[in-house]
């Protein structure tokens, strides 16, 4: 895994991590936890964000072509609120039916089908950009309360 931090050492504005093995899941969780703490999220919100991130990073390993993708973690701010934004992108086959994928219990891989809908319930915003054959990008935001 390689990490590029294009910010100052004290508060990296943005961290990019490659995900192509199970060990990278732990690294993604650690990045999200660190940024959540820096953004001042409470313990429950930290836990929800890290859990959602773990689900989405695992989706890369399970669904993406070559089981690889990229995770970007950065501080989110809309002027008033502070939070954490994370993007999970891959060059995989894409999601054929995004609406179905957001439904509880829908899975093409025999899982519980909780990854996407479950993650959506854990964060404040979840957006999916995907089309068949052109990869998938899932972005989540969790704001400080």
């Amino acid at each position: 895994m390689s990490i590029k931090a294009d910010g100052s050492e004290l508060a990296p504005a943005r961290v990019v991590a490659l995900v192509d093995s199970e060990a990278d899941l732990i690294h993604v969780r650690q990045l999200l936890r660190a940024e959540a703490v820096r953004a001042g999220l409470g313990l429950v919100d930290q836990t929800k964000l890290v859990t959602a991130g773990s689900e989405l990073a695992r989706n890369i390993l399970v669904y993406a072509t070559g089981s690889r993708g990229e995770v970007t973690v950065e501080r989110a701010s809309d002027g008033e609120r502070q939070g954490v934004r994370a993007a999970f992108s891959d060059e995989g086959p894409g999601i054929e039916d995004v609406e179905a994928a957001m439904r509880d219990g829908f899975s093409t891989r025999g899982s519980l089908g909780l990854g996407l809908p479950g993650s959506k319930r854990l964060v404040d915003e979840l957006t999916i950009t995907s089309a068949k054959g052109s990869g998938t990008r899932v972005t989540i935001v969790k704001w400080r309360r």
């Binding site: 429950v44 859990t51 509880d104 909780l114 479950g118 854990l122």
Partner: peptide, 9 residues
């Protein structure tokens, strides 16, 4: 809290 919200049985 997280598991219940996510819907994990």
């Amino acid at each position: 809290i997280t598991l219940v919200e996510m819907g994990v049985p």
